[in-house]
Design a protein around this nucleic acid. Sequence first.
DNA 1: GGGCCGATTGTT
DNA 2: ACAATCGGCCCG
Length: 199
Amino acid sequence: MLNCLIVNDLIVTQPREFYSRPTLEVARDLLGAPLLRRLSNGEILTGRILEVEAYTHDDPACHAFRGKTERCKIMFGPAGYVYVYFIYGMYWCLNVVTEQEGVAGAVLIRAVDTPHGNGPGKLCRVWDINRQQYGLDLCDSNSEIYIARSEPLPDREVEVSTRIGLKDAQDRVWRFFVKNHGGVSGLKRSSAPRIVHPK
DNA sequence: GGGCCGATTGTT
DNA sequence: ACAATCGGCCCG
């Protein structure tokens, strides 16, 4: 694994302060970070994060928009924990909790640089991520899922667009992905999000 | 308890 | 363009 911070053979995770920031900043800085998943048989899967979307408490598309429920309660707690939800009767989606404790926010992991890791539902299917991983601490390298500390990608490698698959709040340019990388999701879809180029 | 709907995906 | 498939959420 390239570009992980490794001290005494231990992979150093992103500290909690990395996640306890505005959701949009965390989302953008997660690009390029190595995501690690330790399976029950001890095997470790790794992949760089290629595509993310931000969801905030004042965002109609956010599960926490209408307040705390059994499903989204983790989003109101401290940052750096795993939020997973079930969607369309078939798929699980992996998120990381953001913001200060008491403020709901999360970043959806939409793609990683690994085989069949393009798309949030496919990633969780291939990496065996489901409700059992709800609430895992990403800041603990003993967790089944954690994220290694790494330098953020330079702006020239980052592209932004509107989010995918939403009915509400389609105007927000809150999707971040690695530019010119074939591993991002939705490349063959006609309902492509609106890509916004820097001036 | 009922009914609607969804942060997806693969196929037509 | 549409089906698959079912838990969460809101309402009453």
